[in-house]
């Protein structure tokens, strides 16, 4: 549970509580769905609950884990039949898991660190810039979920 960027204010919390906060803030910066958001244009393998797999590049995703892929290779559950699709949409609720390129986690972390450093140098001395500091938008907010119109009513068609 180590975090290089422990906001100084946390030092005054009792140690167990501090650990919890640090761990939470650590997680919050790359929640599973934020990671997915950051994986746009990256290749990935999506396996559905029924065992079908879809290999392709992520075009977009939303907060329901609905995704669109392009240049897709689909296989049946036994893995002995293949289809090639230009583009496909997968409803989030049908997904079992997604396999993402191994290096993506590091890429996202680096990006966040850079953003955080930028936020630090922008802010004036003494100001503690944790997350939500000025100039350092946390990735995955605002950028994602363009598929949802207006106020997010009606998840169906």
């Amino acid at each position: 549970m180590q975090c290089k960027y422990l906001p100084d204010v946390l030092c005054f919390l009792p140690s167990p509580r501090r650990d919890a906060v640090v761990a939470l803030s650590h997680i919050v910066t790359m929640l599973p769905l934020s990671l997915l958001n950051a994986a746009q244009n990256k290749p990935m393998l999506v396996e559905l609950k029924n065992g079908e797999t879809f290999n392709g590049h992520l075009i977009n995703c939303d907060n329901f884990m609905n995704i669109t892929l392009k240049e897709v290779y689909q296989t049946n559950p036994d893995g002995d039949r293949f289809w090639k699709l230009k583009e496909c949409y997968i409803r989030g609720s049908t997904i079992k898991y997604i396999r993402i390129p191994e290096n993506l986690l590091d890429v996202v972390k680096d990006e966040q660190n850079r953003a955080r450093e930028a936020g630090r140098s922008n802010s004036r001395g003494g100001h503690i810039s944790g997350r939500g500091g000025r100039g350092a938008p946390v990735r995955g907010r605002g950028r994602g979920a363009p598929m949802r119109g207006g106020r997010g009513r009606g998840r169906g068609m």
């Binding site: 790359m30 599973p32 990671l35 989030g92 997904i95 898991y97 191994e102």
Partner: peptide, 27 residues
Amino acid sequence: LVLEDTVERIYHGNAFAEFPRGLFLIR
């Protein structure tokens, strides 16, 4: 869940085997 450095394990009788699978996002 986000799982890093994932290996899949299979068991049979008194033996097991592993296969590296990488980074997982599990629903």
